Simulated scan of single mutants.
Amino acid sequence: MNFGITENFNSYGPYRLWWSRYEPCRGPKSTNLTILSTNLIKDGDFYYSWVNFTFLTQARIDEIKITVYALKNNRSNLLMRYKLDDPCQHFAIASIIEKQLNAKNCVVKKGNYSCYANFTEISYAFFGNSFFYGEYMQKITTLSKKGNIACIVLNSIFEKKTKPMT
């Protein structure tokens, strides 16, 4: 599968980034407003996320929570909790929600939506040269006041690049 990447992977930072776990999880609310199916696709050195949402009802995306844990020796240590109370006011997240889910003012209509994201490109753009080597687990939860929209757990591994990748 080729997603049209023409850049050389070796032009990205001094680290190699890959994922060892990627799966849906249960959200904190008792009601699910969507049916979610997702997959992480590896194409060469690049990773892509495919997500299919079936919104069972119209819903407003009110909040996104991200929790990050450092993983070492079968132990997890909480590093950070990040909460976006109004994701459609966020400089980067707002355009993703609007484009991928055809949302106006963070409201997504009932229906089926498929989204693709280049995890590799997004991650390198976000982390740049500010990162730590090691393995990390992120739990990303998207919520409406009415219920859960999405929950995904993924493990990211940062390794030092020792030689150019082929």
Rank of each mutant, 00 (worst) to 15 (best):
1 M>N: 01
2 N>H: 09
6 T>S: 10
7 E>F: 07
7 E>V: 11
9 F>C: 10
9 F>V: 14
11 S>Y: 10
13 G>Y: 00
13 G>F: 01
13 G>A: 10
15 Y>F: 14
16 R>Q: 07
17 L>F: 09
17 L>N: 02
18 W>H: 15
18 W>S: 12
20 S>H: 02
21 R>E: 13
21 R>W: 07
25 C>Q: 10
25 C>D: 10
29 K>N: 10
30 S>V: 07
30 S>G: 02
34 T>W: 08
35 I>V: 14
37 S>V: 11
38 T>N: 13
38 T>R: 10
39 N>Q: 14
39 N>P: 00
39 N>S: 13
40 L>H: 01
40 L>V: 00
44 G>Y: 01
46 F>P: 01
48 Y>E: 05
49 S>Y: 00
53 F>P: 04
53 F>Q: 04
54 T>V: 13
55 F>K: 07
59 A>T: 08
59 A>L: 08
60 R>S: 11
60 R>I: 03
62 D>M: 05
63 E>K: 15
63 E>M: 14
63 E>F: 02
64 I>G: 02
64 I>Q: 06
68 V>W: 00
68 V>R: 12
71 L>S: 07
72 K>F: 08
73 N>T: 06
74 N>G: 07
75 R>W: 00
76 S>Q: 14
78 L>N: 08
78 L>F: 09
80 M>F: 06
81 R>N: 13
84 L>D: 01
85 D>Q: 11
86 D>S: 11
86 D>Y: 08
88 C>D: 10
88 C>Y: 05
88 C>Q: 08
88 C>T: 09
88 C>L: 08
89 Q>L: 13
91 F>I: 13
98 E>N: 12
99 K>H: 07
100 Q>R: 10
101 L>I: 07
102 N>P: 00
102 N>M: 11
105 N>F: 06
109 K>E: 14
110 K>G: 08
111 G>S: 03
111 G>T: 06
111 G>E: 06
111 G>L: 04
112 N>Y: 12
113 Y>A: 01
115 C>E: 07
115 C>S: 14
117 A>L: 14
119 F>C: 04
122 I>R: 15
122 I>S: 11
126 F>D: 03
126 F>H: 09
126 F>R: 13
127 F>D: 05
131 F>D: 03
133 Y>R: 05
134 G>I: 09
136 Y>T: 03
136 Y>Q: 06
136 Y>A: 02
138 Q>M: 12
138 Q>T: 13
139 K>Y: 07
140 I>L: 12
141 T>R: 10
142 T>C: 05
146 K>R: 14
148 N>S: 06
151 C>Q: 05
151 C>D: 02
155 N>E: 13
155 N>R: 13
156 S>Q: 12
156 S>E: 09
157 I>T: 15
157 I>D: 00
158 F>S: 08
159 E>H: 09
160 K>W: 04
162 T>N: 13
163 K>T: 10
166 T>K: 14
166 T>P: 05
